[in-house]
Amino acid sequence: MAPTILILALGCAYNEELPEKDILGTVIVPAAAATRLQADGTTATDPRFIGPIFLGAYSGIDTVSFGYPHPSMGPIVTADTPGDAFPYGGTTVGRYDFACYESLACKVVTGRFSDYNDMLEYFGTVLGSPIQDDNGADVANGSTFQQACYDYFYATSDQEMAFLGDLDFALNADGDFEAAFVMPHTVFVEGMTIWGWMDAPEIVPANPTESGGFSSCDVSTGREFDQYDENFREGRVYFDALNTPSQYIYAGDWVASGAEEAVVNSPDDKPVVRLDFGFGVGEAE
């Protein structure tokens, strides 16, 4: 039997020597990033204010070209377009998903809401812009919301709704919000930096119906749904959010400063991406 085991061992020893690795890490969103003005005029710290987090592995950080730390860019090729940051890999913590009503296109991020009532409260009370159905009437309660979703997606359980369920972020000991991430199939380059940014939702106190939207989501594209309106599309993220993030970062968004703890020197490193730079809002804390 011993020779057989040896042969088996030889077989198991096949090593692909893949340049790509899965990078596991943590992203930390400071409490200040989740502290926004509510409809009633008070500010509150609410994890539902955390927009999608875009994370990428980059060659370095450029602190000069923009008013915030940005990944190192290549040269400008096309006029009016910034240089490409050529990410080695990336992922998100929270992504855009369509939540059944046209009025919610490009306003809902996965991993932020646990159930329908949670969403109704966020849009209605916190933002002051109640969710409206496709006829313009306010959505009364969670059951109505649920039924609309079941009808729209031909679904029969809430587990099929990507935008509901487990929350990505939990409060850590420092009072900041922390989430784990996996960046799969990322080209490992020694010394690469994991950099990320959070797209903060727009808060427009003067006109609450405009609140809740995101600059990195394009309302005019995405899956077309023509039951009521042949021009209606569900919205989708811009496909170059990690390549030229400066096109979508506006004042109010939070950005990682590229600290040492986010640098990856070995595939087993567990980088910590701290979004500690508030663009246009000053430093955290």
């Binding site: 060659s59 370095g60 190192s72 290549g74 040269p75 090729v77 490409d84 050529f86 080695y88 080209v187 380059v189 020694e190 010394g191 690469m192």
Partner: peptide, 9 residues
Amino acid sequence: DPAGVEHEL
């Protein structure tokens, strides 16, 4: 790029 990886433009 700064990490020495080549990219084609």
